[in-house]
Protein backbone atom coordinates (compact mmCIF):
# COMPACT_ATOMS: atom_id res chain seq x y z
CA UNK A 1 0.00 0.00 0.00
CA UNK A 2 1.05 3.57 -0.65
CA UNK A 3 -0.24 5.95 2.00
CA UNK A 4 -0.89 9.54 0.92
CA UNK A 5 -1.06 12.33 3.48
CA UNK A 6 -4.21 14.30 2.64
CA UNK A 7 -3.35 17.89 3.41
CA UNK A 8 -6.31 20.00 4.49
CA UNK A 9 -7.00 23.12 6.46
CA UNK A 10 -9.73 22.61 9.07
CA UNK A 11 -11.36 20.02 6.86
CA UNK A 12 -11.01 21.81 3.53
CA UNK A 13 -8.95 19.84 1.01
CA UNK A 14 -7.00 21.90 -1.52
CA UNK A 15 -4.89 21.28 -4.60
CA UNK A 16 -1.81 19.89 -2.72
CA UNK A 17 -3.68 16.75 -1.57
CA UNK A 18 -5.02 16.12 -5.07
CA UNK A 19 -1.56 16.63 -6.58
CA UNK A 20 -0.12 14.08 -4.14
CA UNK A 21 -2.86 11.54 -4.98
CA UNK A 22 -2.43 12.07 -8.72
CA UNK A 23 1.33 11.54 -8.32
CA UNK A 24 0.97 8.53 -6.01
CA UNK A 25 -1.65 6.61 -7.96
CA UNK A 26 0.67 6.33 -10.98
CA UNK A 27 3.41 4.94 -8.75
CA UNK A 28 0.97 2.55 -7.01
CA UNK A 29 -0.32 1.22 -10.34
CA UNK A 30 3.24 0.36 -11.41
CA UNK A 31 3.76 -1.54 -8.14
CA UNK A 32 0.40 -3.28 -8.18
CA UNK A 33 -0.30 -1.65 -4.82
CA UNK A 34 -3.28 0.24 -3.40
CA UNK A 35 -3.15 4.00 -3.15
CA UNK A 36 -4.87 5.12 0.07
CA UNK A 37 -5.43 8.48 1.72
CA UNK A 38 -4.88 9.48 5.35
CA UNK A 39 -6.78 12.46 6.73
CA UNK A 40 -5.64 13.68 10.13
CA UNK A 41 -8.00 15.63 12.38
CA UNK A 42 -10.43 16.71 9.67
CA UNK A 43 -13.56 15.61 11.52
CA UNK A 44 -15.93 12.94 10.24
CA UNK A 45 -18.20 15.35 8.36
CA UNK A 46 -15.38 17.06 6.48
CA UNK A 47 -13.70 13.76 5.63
CA UNK A 48 -17.01 12.42 4.35
CA UNK A 49 -17.52 15.52 2.25
CA UNK A 50 -14.01 15.23 0.73
CA UNK A 51 -14.20 11.47 0.15
CA UNK A 52 -15.76 11.52 -3.32
CA UNK A 53 -13.15 13.93 -4.69
CA UNK A 54 -10.29 12.02 -3.02
CA UNK A 55 -11.63 8.78 -4.47
CA UNK A 56 -11.89 10.35 -7.90
CA UNK A 57 -8.23 11.37 -7.65
CA UNK A 58 -7.07 7.87 -6.78
CA UNK A 59 -7.69 7.07 -3.10
CA UNK A 60 -8.94 3.46 -2.93
CA UNK A 61 -9.51 3.77 0.83
CA UNK A 62 -9.57 6.77 3.13
CA UNK A 63 -8.11 6.34 6.60
CA UNK A 64 -9.06 8.94 9.18
CA UNK A 65 -7.47 9.91 12.49
CA UNK A 66 -9.41 11.78 15.16
CA UNK A 67 -8.15 12.92 18.56
CA UNK A 68 -8.96 15.83 20.85
CA UNK A 69 -5.44 17.25 20.42
CA UNK A 70 -6.10 17.54 16.66
CA UNK A 71 -8.38 20.59 16.98
CA UNK A 72 -6.36 22.44 14.34
CA UNK A 73 -3.14 21.94 12.42
CA UNK A 74 -0.11 21.17 14.59
CA UNK A 75 3.12 19.81 13.13
CA UNK A 76 3.98 17.57 16.08
CA UNK A 77 0.46 16.15 16.53
CA UNK A 78 0.09 15.53 12.80
CA UNK A 79 3.59 14.04 12.52
CA UNK A 80 3.05 11.71 15.48
CA UNK A 81 -0.38 10.68 14.09
CA UNK A 82 1.20 9.91 10.72
CA UNK A 83 4.01 7.94 12.39
CA UNK A 84 1.49 5.84 14.36
CA UNK A 85 -0.66 5.28 11.27
CA UNK A 86 2.43 4.10 9.38
CA UNK A 87 3.27 1.70 12.22
CA UNK A 88 -0.31 0.34 12.17
CA UNK A 89 -0.88 0.14 8.42
CA UNK A 90 2.66 -0.80 7.30
CA UNK A 91 2.60 0.95 3.91
CA UNK A 92 5.51 0.41 1.53
CA UNK A 93 5.83 4.17 1.20
CA UNK A 94 4.28 7.41 2.38
CA UNK A 95 3.72 10.31 0.02
CA UNK A 96 2.71 13.92 0.52
CA UNK A 97 2.74 17.08 -1.52
CA UNK A 98 5.91 19.15 -1.02
CA UNK A 99 3.99 22.12 0.35
CA UNK A 100 5.03 23.87 3.56
CA UNK A 101 2.76 21.69 5.72
CA UNK A 102 3.34 18.55 3.66
CA UNK A 103 7.13 18.66 4.01
CA UNK A 104 6.91 19.59 7.68
CA UNK A 105 4.58 16.74 8.65
CA UNK A 106 6.62 14.23 6.65
CA UNK A 107 9.83 15.43 8.35
CA UNK A 108 8.12 15.04 11.73
CA UNK A 109 6.90 11.51 11.02
CA UNK A 110 10.18 10.37 9.42
CA UNK A 111 12.12 11.82 12.37
CA UNK A 112 9.95 9.96 14.87
CA UNK A 113 10.48 6.65 13.04
CA UNK A 114 14.12 7.48 12.15
CA UNK A 115 13.41 6.70 8.50
CA UNK A 116 14.69 8.57 5.44
CA UNK A 117 12.57 11.26 3.79
CA UNK A 118 13.23 12.65 0.32
CA UNK A 119 11.53 16.02 -0.10
CA UNK A 120 10.36 17.51 -3.39
CA UNK A 121 10.70 14.56 -5.75
CA UNK A 122 9.70 14.82 -9.39
CA UNK A 123 10.08 11.09 -10.04
CA UNK A 124 9.97 8.03 -7.76
CA UNK A 125 10.74 4.44 -8.76
CA UNK A 126 9.91 1.52 -6.50
CA UNK A 127 12.58 -1.02 -5.59
CA UNK A 128 13.01 -3.84 -8.08
CA UNK A 129 12.24 -7.35 -6.79
CA UNK A 130 14.93 -8.84 -4.49
CA UNK A 131 16.05 -11.17 -7.30
CA UNK A 132 17.72 -8.22 -8.97
CA UNK A 133 19.74 -7.22 -5.90
CA UNK A 134 23.01 -5.64 -6.86
CA UNK A 135 21.65 -3.90 -9.94
CA UNK A 136 21.19 -0.16 -9.94
CA UNK A 137 17.70 -0.18 -8.48
CA UNK A 138 17.68 -3.65 -6.98
CA UNK A 139 18.02 -4.79 -3.41
CA UNK A 140 15.37 -2.71 -1.71
CA UNK A 141 16.31 0.86 -2.55
CA UNK A 142 13.83 3.33 -3.90
CA UNK A 143 15.22 5.53 -6.58
CA UNK A 144 14.17 9.17 -6.78
CA UNK A 145 14.87 12.34 -8.69
CA UNK A 146 14.40 15.33 -6.43
CA UNK A 147 14.92 19.04 -6.80
CA UNK A 148 17.79 20.98 -5.31
CA UNK A 149 18.17 24.74 -5.45
CA UNK A 150 14.40 25.08 -5.71
CA UNK A 151 14.44 23.31 -9.08
CA UNK A 152 17.51 24.66 -10.84
CA UNK A 153 19.42 21.45 -10.11
CA UNK A 154 18.23 17.83 -9.91
CA UNK A 155 19.52 15.08 -7.66
CA UNK A 156 19.21 11.37 -8.39
CA UNK A 157 19.28 9.53 -5.09
CA UNK A 158 18.66 6.12 -3.58
CA UNK A 159 16.46 5.86 -0.55
CA UNK A 160 16.95 2.79 1.62
CA UNK A 161 14.75 2.47 4.70
CA UNK A 162 16.65 0.87 7.58
CA UNK A 163 15.31 -2.66 7.89
CA UNK A 164 13.16 -4.57 5.44
CA UNK A 165 9.53 -3.58 5.04
CA UNK A 166 9.98 -0.18 6.61
CA UNK A 167 8.32 2.70 4.84
CA UNK A 168 10.13 5.26 2.74
CA UNK A 169 8.90 8.87 2.86
CA UNK A 170 8.60 11.10 -0.21
CA UNK A 171 7.02 14.38 -1.08
CA UNK A 172 6.38 15.40 -4.67
CA UNK A 173 7.51 18.90 -5.58
CA UNK A 174 4.69 21.42 -5.74
CA UNK A 175 3.16 21.66 -9.25
CA UNK A 176 5.00 18.54 -10.49
CA UNK A 177 1.68 17.09 -11.61
CA UNK A 178 -1.65 18.79 -12.15
CA UNK A 179 -4.48 17.25 -10.10
CA UNK A 180 -6.46 15.03 -12.47
CA UNK A 181 -9.53 12.96 -11.59
CA UNK A 182 -9.83 9.42 -12.94
CA UNK A 183 -12.17 8.92 -15.86
CA UNK A 184 -14.65 7.41 -15.16
CA UNK A 185 -14.47 8.32 -11.46
CA UNK A 186 -14.56 5.32 -9.14
CA UNK A 187 -17.07 5.25 -6.28
CA UNK A 188 -16.40 6.99 -2.97
CA UNK A 189 -13.64 5.23 -1.03
CA UNK A 190 -14.34 3.16 2.06
CA UNK A 191 -13.60 5.19 5.21
CA UNK A 192 -11.65 3.49 7.97
CA UNK A 193 -10.68 5.04 11.31
CA UNK A 194 -7.12 4.60 12.65
CA UNK A 195 -6.68 4.91 16.41
CA UNK A 196 -3.77 6.97 17.73
CA UNK A 197 -2.55 7.87 21.21
CA UNK A 198 -1.34 11.43 21.49
CA UNK A 199 0.23 12.95 24.56
CA UNK A 200 -1.55 16.15 25.64
CA UNK A 201 1.89 17.82 25.33
CA UNK A 202 1.48 17.61 21.54
CA UNK A 203 -0.95 20.51 21.71
CA UNK A 204 2.03 22.81 22.39
CA UNK A 205 2.53 23.28 18.63
CA UNK A 206 -1.11 23.37 17.55
CA UNK A 207 -2.07 26.63 15.81
CA UNK A 208 -3.12 29.04 18.57
CA UNK A 209 -4.50 31.88 16.53
CA UNK A 210 -5.02 33.08 12.97
CA UNK A 211 -4.87 36.55 11.52
CA UNK A 212 -6.56 37.27 8.20
CA UNK A 213 -4.86 40.12 6.36
CA UNK A 214 -6.63 40.11 3.06
CA UNK A 215 -9.66 38.61 1.50
CA UNK A 216 -9.78 37.62 -2.13
CA UNK A 217 -7.13 36.43 -4.53
CA UNK A 218 -3.72 35.49 -3.09
CA UNK A 219 -0.34 35.23 -4.78
CA UNK A 220 -0.03 31.40 -4.92
CA UNK A 221 -3.51 30.98 -6.46
CA UNK A 222 -3.85 34.18 -8.51
CA UNK A 223 -4.82 33.53 -12.16
CA UNK A 224 -2.68 36.51 -13.20
CA UNK A 225 0.48 37.79 -11.51
CA UNK A 226 2.09 41.07 -12.52
CA UNK A 227 5.67 40.91 -11.26
CA UNK A 228 8.11 43.77 -10.90
CA UNK A 229 11.88 43.63 -10.53
CA UNK A 230 14.77 46.02 -10.06
CA UNK A 231 13.64 47.80 -13.23
CA UNK A 232 10.60 49.21 -11.41
CA UNK A 233 13.03 51.49 -9.59
CA UNK A 234 11.05 52.40 -6.47
CA UNK A 235 8.12 51.48 -4.21
CA UNK A 236 6.01 54.13 -5.97
CA UNK A 237 6.86 52.61 -9.34
CA UNK A 238 4.67 49.62 -8.49
CA UNK A 239 1.50 51.71 -8.83
CA UNK A 240 1.25 50.96 -12.56
CA UNK A 241 1.68 47.23 -11.89
CA UNK A 242 -1.02 47.36 -9.17
CA UNK A 243 -3.37 48.99 -11.64
CA UNK A 244 -2.84 46.34 -14.32
CA UNK A 245 -3.07 43.49 -11.78
CA UNK A 246 -6.36 44.82 -10.48
CA UNK A 247 -7.73 45.17 -13.99
CA UNK A 248 -6.91 41.50 -14.73
CA UNK A 249 -8.13 40.18 -11.37
CA UNK A 250 -4.58 39.30 -10.36
CA UNK A 251 -1.92 40.13 -7.82
CA UNK A 252 1.41 41.94 -7.80
CA UNK A 253 4.55 39.92 -7.19
CA UNK A 254 8.21 40.94 -7.13
CA UNK A 255 11.80 39.70 -7.24
CA UNK A 256 14.26 39.36 -4.37
CA UNK A 257 16.05 42.59 -5.36
CA UNK A 258 12.80 44.44 -4.70
CA UNK A 259 12.24 43.10 -1.18
CA UNK A 260 15.93 43.60 -0.34
CA UNK A 261 15.46 47.26 -1.32
CA UNK A 262 12.39 47.46 0.91
CA UNK A 263 10.07 48.44 -1.97
CA UNK A 264 7.59 45.61 -1.30
CA UNK A 265 6.93 43.26 1.65
CA UNK A 266 8.58 39.84 1.56
CA UNK A 267 5.16 38.21 1.23
CA UNK A 268 5.07 39.51 -2.37
CA UNK A 269 8.38 37.87 -3.29
CA UNK A 270 8.25 35.22 -6.00
CA UNK A 271 11.18 32.83 -5.94
CA UNK A 272 13.13 30.09 -4.21
CA UNK A 273 13.00 31.84 -0.84
CA UNK A 274 9.59 33.38 -1.47
CA UNK A 275 6.30 32.22 -2.97
CA UNK A 276 5.87 29.75 -5.84
CA UNK A 277 3.29 30.90 -8.31
CA UNK A 278 1.45 29.02 -11.05
CA UNK A 279 -0.82 31.56 -12.77
CA UNK A 280 -2.39 31.32 -16.20
CA UNK A 281 -0.41 34.45 -17.10
CA UNK A 282 2.70 35.94 -15.53
CA UNK A 283 3.59 39.43 -16.68
CA UNK A 284 7.24 39.92 -15.67
CA UNK A 285 8.15 43.60 -15.83
CA UNK A 286 11.72 44.75 -15.33
CA UNK A 287 12.76 41.33 -14.06
CA UNK A 288 15.99 39.88 -15.44
CA UNK A 289 15.03 36.34 -14.45
CA UNK A 290 17.84 35.19 -12.15
CA UNK A 291 17.66 31.53 -11.12
CA UNK A 292 16.38 32.41 -7.64
CA UNK A 293 13.36 34.17 -9.16
CA UNK A 294 12.83 31.82 -12.09
CA UNK A 295 12.31 28.70 -9.95
CA UNK A 296 9.39 30.44 -8.22
CA UNK A 297 7.81 31.50 -11.51
CA UNK A 298 8.54 28.52 -13.78
CA UNK A 299 5.16 26.86 -13.14
CA UNK A 300 3.43 29.80 -14.85
CA UNK A 301 1.44 28.62 -17.88
CA UNK A 302 2.18 31.70 -20.01
CA UNK A 303 4.73 34.47 -19.58
CA UNK A 304 4.78 37.96 -21.03
CA UNK A 305 8.09 39.69 -20.36
CA UNK A 306 8.56 43.45 -20.50
CA UNK A 307 12.20 44.42 -20.38
CA UNK A 308 14.56 47.03 -21.80
CA UNK A 309 17.12 44.26 -22.35
CA UNK A 310 16.14 41.85 -25.18
CA UNK A 311 18.88 39.49 -23.94
CA UNK A 312 17.42 39.17 -20.42
CA UNK A 313 16.91 35.61 -19.20
CA UNK A 314 13.23 36.31 -18.55
CA UNK A 315 12.76 37.39 -22.18
CA UNK A 316 14.36 34.14 -23.38
CA UNK A 317 12.02 32.08 -21.18
CA UNK A 318 8.87 34.02 -22.04
CA UNK A 319 6.15 33.17 -24.57
CA UNK A 320 5.85 36.83 -25.54
CA UNK A 321 8.07 39.80 -24.90
CA UNK A 322 7.88 43.53 -25.34
CA UNK A 323 11.22 45.30 -25.45
CA UNK A 324 10.95 48.62 -23.70
CA UNK A 325 10.60 50.57 -20.49
CA UNK A 326 7.93 49.06 -18.27
CA UNK A 327 6.92 52.56 -17.13
CA UNK A 328 5.69 53.21 -20.68
CA UNK A 329 4.65 49.72 -21.74
CA UNK A 330 2.56 48.68 -18.70
CA UNK A 331 0.35 51.83 -18.66
CA UNK A 332 -0.11 51.45 -22.45
CA UNK A 333 -1.28 47.84 -21.96
CA UNK A 334 -3.64 48.95 -19.19
CA UNK A 335 -5.07 51.69 -21.41
CA UNK A 336 -5.51 49.28 -24.33
CA UNK A 337 -7.39 46.74 -22.17
CA UNK A 338 -9.66 49.52 -20.87
CA UNK A 339 -10.29 50.74 -24.43
CA UNK A 340 -11.28 47.26 -25.65
CA UNK A 341 -13.49 46.59 -22.65
CA UNK A 342 -15.26 49.90 -23.21
CA UNK A 343 -16.13 48.96 -26.78
Amino acid sequence: MLLVLIEHDRGVVGAPALEALTFARGLAAGMDADCCGLMIGAGETSAGRAAASLGAHGAARLYTVEHEVLSDFGPEAWGESLAQAVAALQPAAVLACGSERGNEVMAQAAARLDLPFAANCIAVTAPAPPATAGTENGGGSWSVTRVQWGGSLLEDADLAPGAQNEAAFFSCALHTVAPAPLDPPPGAPEMLPVAVELDAEMSRTVVADRVVLEAGVTLPTAPVVVGGGRGVGSAEGFAVLEELAELLGGRVGCSRAVTNNGWRPHSDQVGQTGTRIAPELYIAAGISGAVQHWVGAMASKHILAVNTDPEANMVAKADWAVVGDLHEVIPAITAEIRRRRAQ
Partner: peptide
Protein backbone atom coordinates in the same frame (compact mmCIF):
# COMPACT_ATOMS: atom_id res chain seq x y z
CA UNK B 1 19.12 6.10 4.32
CA UNK B 2 19.42 8.64 1.51
CA UNK B 3 22.37 8.33 -0.84
CA UNK B 4 23.24 10.85 -3.52
CA UNK B 5 23.90 9.17 -6.85
CA UNK B 6 24.21 12.03 -9.28
CA UNK B 7 23.52 15.72 -9.68
CA UNK B 8 22.42 17.04 -13.05
CA UNK B 9 20.88 20.10 -14.60
CA UNK B 10 17.26 19.91 -15.66
CA UNK B 11 16.51 20.10 -19.36
CA UNK B 12 16.22 23.82 -20.04
CA UNK B 13 12.86 24.89 -21.31
CA UNK B 14 13.66 26.56 -24.59
CA UNK B 15 10.87 28.87 -25.48
CA UNK B 16 10.40 30.46 -28.88
CA UNK B 17 9.77 33.89 -27.54
CA UNK B 18 7.60 35.99 -29.81
CA UNK B 19 8.91 39.55 -29.67
CA UNK B 20 5.76 41.65 -29.93
CA UNK B 21 7.47 44.94 -30.55
CA UNK B 22 9.18 47.90 -28.95
CA UNK B 23 7.84 50.19 -26.27
CA UNK B 24 4.29 51.43 -25.88
CA UNK B 25 3.54 50.77 -29.57
CA UNK B 26 3.56 47.04 -28.77
CA UNK B 27 0.67 47.36 -26.31
Amino acid sequence: GQRLRRLHRPVETVSDTAILGQGADAA
